[in-house]
Simulated scan of single mutants.
Amino acid sequence: MVVIGGGTGLPVILRGLRDQDIEITAVVTVADDGGSSGILRNYVNVVPPGDIRNALVALTNLPKLERDIFQYRFDSSDQFLAGHAIGNLIITALAEMKGDIYQAVQELAEMMDIRGHIYPVTNEPLTLNAEFTDGTTLSGESEITAAHKQIQRVWVTPTNNADQHEPAAMHAVIEAIHDADQIVLGPGSLFTSILPNLVIKNVGQAVRESKAEVVYICNIMTQKGETDHFTDADHVRVINAHLGEHFIDTVLVNIQPVPEDYINFQAWNEISEPVQHDFTGLRAQGCRVISANFLRLRDNGAFHDRDKVVAELMNRLHDVH
């Protein structure tokens, strides 16, 4: 199984898959430019490590203390180290030592007793670019989201290279996609976690050509500045449009209502409203729709129930093969 994404959604699914009897490959976006990742990227000229760190922790067999140390984030009073996670610093140091983020992640995966494989989608940091429906463009994931404008399309360019060559995924990424029995997209930010991987030419081509079942885990809530007022069919429509064909086979949709008075929109300020359903629109794009209660309410927020999602993915894997 190949899981493609980034942000907070990817590690949720990876943690659930870690103990399943499958070979897991996580393909992780390298277009993040916010928080600790963004600062390290700007100062050290390295692939942003945050999403990679979370994937490593999700798949490690290390005891809880070691996991907690790796995830520990210095608080704001620490000035120089403020906001940095120890794992981000370790990944950055190894990447500098090896001169290669891919090799650094493979060595760290061995040190951390990882179950499966974790591949940065490219061996160089990428910048996310967006064109909005009003014709304007912006560069940088944080800037794009903060603009709160309707996005028409996104693409990626190399961050550090003046010749603006075509970004390409590592051979290991393409090989994993070609060998997969199931390819999972999401859950996660549509324009800033999922599409930055798929718009890389050889990744999109490999996913389109794959004989694997492509499963999209649709978000439960819409995201401010990205998917305001989107239905589940709108999410799929955008992904398909970026790759030029209807390639998503199956969509997992949560149909358990989110209680109106439960969500703390100040604490979870990236979300706006539950994703509305358009099953006719999904089927018109050739999708098999699996609708169920995938909802987990916690901390006044709405999330996917990891165990229920993973159980459905495993059911699909066994049904198809």
Rank of each mutant, 00 (worst) to 15 (best):
H117S: 13
E226C: 07
V215P: 06
I239D: 01
T136M: 02
I39K: 13
V310N: 06
L252T: 06
I24T: 10
R73L: 05
I271Y: 01
G186D: 05
M97S: 14
L138V: 04
L17W: 02
Q205H: 12
R153Q: 08
L126F: 09
S189L: 04
Q164D: 02
G5M: 11
R153L: 01
H229S: 10
S77L: 14
L138N: 02
V44T: 02
Y72C: 08
S142I: 05
V2Q: 14
E175H: 07
V253N: 01
P259Y: 04
N88W: 01
V199A: 12
L94C: 03
Q106G: 14
G5H: 05
D234K: 05
L198Q: 05
V57L: 15
A267R: 15
A95R: 00
A58C: 06
G301F: 03
I4M: 10
I263N: 09
V253W: 00
K64Q: 11
H235G: 02
K308W: 00
G225F: 01
V289G: 02
D278K: 08
N269W: 02
V47C: 13
D179S: 09
A212L: 11
L94Q: 09
G38Y: 06
G38W: 05
M112W: 06
A206L: 10
N264S: 13
R67S: 05
E166F: 02
A55V: 07
M111I: 15
Y216H: 11
E141M: 02
A130Q: 07
N160Q: 06
N264W: 09
T159G: 02
Q106Y: 04
K308L: 12
S37T: 07
L195M: 15
V30A: 07
I22V: 15
R306W: 00
L297E: 03
E245D: 05
G6A: 10
Q182E: 11
D307N: 14
R306F: 01
Q182W: 08
D278T: 12
I290R: 15
S37G: 09
L56C: 10
A180L: 03
P257I: 04
E209H: 04
P274D: 15
V46Y: 01
L297G: 10
F303A: 10
S142A: 10
Y216S: 07
G34I: 14
H165D: 08
